[in-house]
Nucleic acid binder design. Structure first.
Lengths: 250, 250
DNA sequence: TGTATACAAATGCCAGACAATTAAATGCCT
DNA sequence: AGGCATTTAATTGTCTGGCATTTGTATACA
């Protein structure tokens, strides 16, 4: 059943898979050097361009890095949290943009995930985290910010929130998920009044963390979700009306 | 500062980035056909192998697919939830295996995220979801299962849990995160007694969802997290003792 | 009309070459 | 002997040109 498709994989895909399996299984460890392109070509009985295509596939997944010159070559890459997050964001962003995910669903998912760190955040938040959040709040309160800048600061604030939970794995997953939704959030046009409201909610969120009250933080996130949803739906409704007018002008 | 590194990017990486940006920005839509390799080579003033390397990079990220023959070529790929999840799992699994993440941290992150869907799950779970969970529970109760099979069934149960929240974006993120931790969970050796305990907790979790009581489900997840942690720490301690004995046999 | 064949366009793959880069080895001078 | 410049070798980056394979379409023929 499954093998029907597998039989027709490119050589470069097969070779990439073979090497990838070796990395995943631990046969190749971080910073290990792969054989040179010429040697790999010999081993797999293919030409060097084919090997190179396979290596580029792996490089695109951040599984290897290459260095030129003598004693250079392809090395197994130690994946960092930052790189992994970047990759997940790329994938998630694309997924959202290609599958007409409704604003409601995305918003619900975002805040559901964000709530999952309030208990830990309330327990472990440091002064540095609170400072980082307050710094973003101050930025958001400044007049004259573009919607994109405001939105980016919003992401930064929520990034500080998830980091304050003190769990790098959780940070990685949550920050990636939140950032992936930024393009959707960027559609919203924030009026001065809506910004004021959001800044107030952000302040209350930070205060709740400072007081180490997870329940209060959850409640603020509920409000934030409801308000974000309201703003987003307004935009979507306006856009839908405009589209309807364009297709049926009479 | 940043541009120091950027100046030395491979041509194939530059070209891949250029095309990727076009896809991300919406200039290229799903199922759009890219120019042929020869045309791209002309446009970017490079050779065809270089273009091919760029395309393989994009293919590795599931951004494009290629078809052979007349009117074939490279097409922008409509990313599905399944493919996106697979990619995220690959990245996350590698991240965990390469950064000596402690069992405690991984476990904490996993259950924190899983708790984020209990409210929605309690509200929206259907009979089908409950049936799926009970089917896995029945499987887990059968004697003679290997640890891997037991663990896989555990993942399937939790997958049903997150799906019951009825939010595909949330499912995608949570299921990916949980599955990525399976290798870590696979280290645990489940005794008959520990399996009995886990099956009991799973049953209570399902019951809580059936009764639509999110708080009860959270409580069960707390217990499950504590017990998983206990089992994992036992394994880690035994492993550490063994390692100490091996390095210092005297 | 229906089928077989030829054609065209595109990707898949290969061989060989040259350029660029870089670490190590070598040689030279002080 | 030590420090500096030069050569050398290994390796990736890129190009040229070509052949094989796949596949839709058009054409020719019965």
């Amino acid at each position: 059943m499954k093998s029907d498709k597998k039989t027709k994989a490119d050589l470069s895909a097969q070779i990439a898979k073979s090497i990838r399996d070796q990395i995943l299984s631990g046969a190749l460890l971080a910073d290990d050097r792969l054989p040179s392109e010429a040697e790999l070509a010999d081993q797999f009985s293919v030409s060097r361009p084919t090997v190179r295509e396979a290596l580029k596939r792996l490089a695109a997944q951040s599984l290897i890095r290459t260095e030129r010159g003598a004693f250079g070559g392809a090395f197994v890459r130690r994946l960092s949290y930052g790189e992994a997050r970047t990759q997940n964001i790329t994938t998630s962003t694309l997924l959202l943009s290609m599958n007409d995910v409704s604003f409601e669903v995305a918003c619900e998912a975002r805040y559901a995930m964000e709530r999952s760190c309030t208990v830990l955040a309330a327990e472990r938040r440091s002064e540095a985290h609170l400072d980082a959040m307050r710094a973003e709040i101050a930025r958001q309160a400044k007049p004259g910010l573009s919607d994109e800048t405001f939105c980016a600061s919003d992401v930064a604030l929520h990034r500080a929130l998830v980091d304050s939970a003190g769990n790098p794995v959780l940070s990685y997953q949550l920050a990636g998920a939140v950032e992936a939704m930024q393009p959707l959030m960027n559609m919203i046009t924030f009026t001065a009044r809506s910004r004021e409201r959001i800044v107030d909610l952000h302040s209350r969120l930070t205060d709740a963390l400072e007081a180490r009250q997870a329940g209060r933080a959850d409640a603020v996130l509920d409000e934030l979700q409801a308000y974000t949803l309201e703003l987003g739906q307004g935009v979507m409704a306006a856009r839908a009306a405009k589209a309807a007018q364009a297709t049926q002008p009479g």
